[in-house]
Design a protein around this nucleic acid. Structure first.
Lengths: 130, 130
DNA sequence: TTATCAATTGCAACATTGTTGCGTTTAATT
DNA sequence: AATTAAACGCAACAATGTTGCAATTGATAA
């Protein structure tokens, strides 16, 4: 495994994640960093953070991709088997750490990873719609 | 609701879906149609078919988007709550019509749609890996 | 059958998202 | 302080998806 370094850009990206309660797209991160570093650099930092298991990638029903900090609190071996909620109104994506699907697979499949995304209205938008 | 028409391009796209056992990307459809129609037209046909509930959209963990025919056999009200399997080796996506997750949501969320994708090795690739 | 008209298409142009190569800079180590 | 590989910026490119508009065409009614 290659050694990874702590650079100004990487630290800044981590701070953005720290501040955010919801998952972020590459574009959202880029805007928040305000040209502190190049667009390409952010892609590379995101790749590295995924490899380091610091963040995880979420792909939404509409094809958009977002990233969120991992919550390692209770797991040694880290599997992202929690659900995500994607609001159709405000387009925010949040992790539902406690929602875990149960399911029965046919044998002869080997499951390595699961992606469980629910979409609809989040509590905020549900309230303001009444 | 607008009236929709049966055009040569739409019919051709439907035939491609009919022949395929797995979900298809826009690019895959485009190649199979062999310049029968424009790239943009395919995007528009896919949009229409989704609105008509003839196909559904599947977005994969890696951010790729595919489409598959809906199987309406048993449902009046059509909800795509079945799972999809995405093979990490051959990148084929198949519908697992019978795999339905059960889960418990926090109240104050309104769930309209779910996207449940499992990835790993499909039966084909699992066998050839032994 | 023909006229009508909105749905559909093709084309061109553009926007967004993600990738790659390469020379330069920089963090961590000796 | 010297070393060196990781990380960076820049430029160029590829893939994917969108929009506007004029031309075409499928479905309907006359």
């Amino acid at each position: 495994m290659k050694a990874t370094r702590n650079t100004a850009a990487k630290t800044a990206v981590l701070e953005v994640f720290e501040k955010s309660k919801t998952a972020l797209s590459h574009t959202e991160i880029h805007k928040q960093l305000n040209d502190l570093c190049d667009r390409v650099t952010i892609y590379r930092i995101l790749d590295r953070l995924i490899n380091e298991d610091v963040i995880h990638k979420i792909s939404n029903l509409d094809g958009t991709v977002k990233y969120a900090k991992c919550n390692h609190a209770h797991q040694r071996v880290h599997i992202h088997n929690h659900a995500h909620f994607s609001c159709e109104n405000c387009h925010e994506i949040t992790c539902l750490e406690n929602v875990k699907p149960s399911y029965i697979m046919p044998h002869n499949y080997k499951v390595n990873e699961i992606n469980f995304t629910l979409s609809g209205l989040c509590p905020n938008c549900l309230n303001s719609n009444i």
